[in-house]
Simulated assay, not measured.
Amino acid sequence: MIKFQLCLFTFFFLTNCFSQKGLIHYGFIDAKGIGNGKGPDSNAYLVFNKEQSYYVTAKDSLEKAEKINEQKTYNNDDDSGGTIYNGMKVSPQGDQVAYHIKKNTMWSNVLYRKQIYIKEVAPSQTWKIEKETKKIGKFNCKKATTTFRGRTYTAWFTSDIPLPYGPWKLHGLPGLILEAYDSNKNAYWYFKSAEYPSKTKQNANYMSIPKGLKWLSYQEFKKAQQNEINLADDNNKLNAKKFPGVQFLLPKLTDMFLECE
């Protein structure tokens, strides 16, 4: 009888644990083209349950108006120059990623001149779990590394929340990712706070897409990236005619998108 009661308690405990909703607040530093974690610092959050997760950043309602309109210069460490941002990149819906485990699908959008919407099979990520550990907030975390679409990432994940989610498209570890960054810190997510379980009204729903637009496959997204490079090249040629003697550099894909393979 005692064994039965123990098994029953364990069953209800695990069922309750994995049915809980969670909410993680991150800061996200977008330092593409600069590195070293120097760039606009946006609010971000991840809401999740046992079946799916929803991540969003660069959303205007998450930021203060004065921060959105702030002009700021971020200098390179070697004093070779810097980048001037005339306000933050935000939109009403933000940059989003929705991930459903059983459907093995990710839906995402990114703003570059216009909103681009992508639907894809959840991209596989081969993680190497290291021996190094550290504490983030109240959570014990382990270190893991992977290479994903042009960048090498370090993630710190916690088995205290045993679900395979993380910020942006990072996923697949045996615990939730609380901190992550690529090797040059062109992208840097850092932990702010956690609610687990959470009573938030925000749900980990699927993304919606405006009428008249369509979901792109990842391969179509890569073509859209190349189109942006071609457009920049055309603009440079026009500007070179208007301003003889001035050199216009073609932007690099690594400076334009997180995914840059």
Score class of each variant (00 low, 15 high):
A180F: 09
K134D: 09
N239S: 15
E220P: 04
S91M: 07
F148E: 01
W127I: 00
W127C: 10
Q93F: 07
Y117T: 01
I68E: 02
K3E: 11
F13P: 07
I84D: 13
F13N: 01
G27M: 01
C260A: 02
P174E: 03
K67E: 04
Y153A: 03
K199L: 01
F157H: 06
M1H: 14
I116P: 01
L6W: 09
N140Q: 07
E51V: 10
K128S: 15
L250M: 06
W127Q: 14
I34D: 04
T145Q: 02
S183Q: 13
Q96S: 13
K67H: 07
L62T: 10
K223C: 01
F48S: 00
D30R: 14
L216W: 12
Y188G: 02
E132C: 12
Y190H: 06
T57N: 05
K142H: 03
I177G: 08
L111K: 08
C260N: 05
Q219P: 00
N205M: 15
M207T: 02
Q52R: 05
L170F: 12
F13Y: 15
Y206A: 11
Q219L: 12
M207F: 07
Y74K: 05
P164Y: 07
A224C: 09
D95H: 10
F221R: 14
K128Q: 06
I118N: 15
E220S: 10
I116S: 02
T146G: 00
K169G: 09
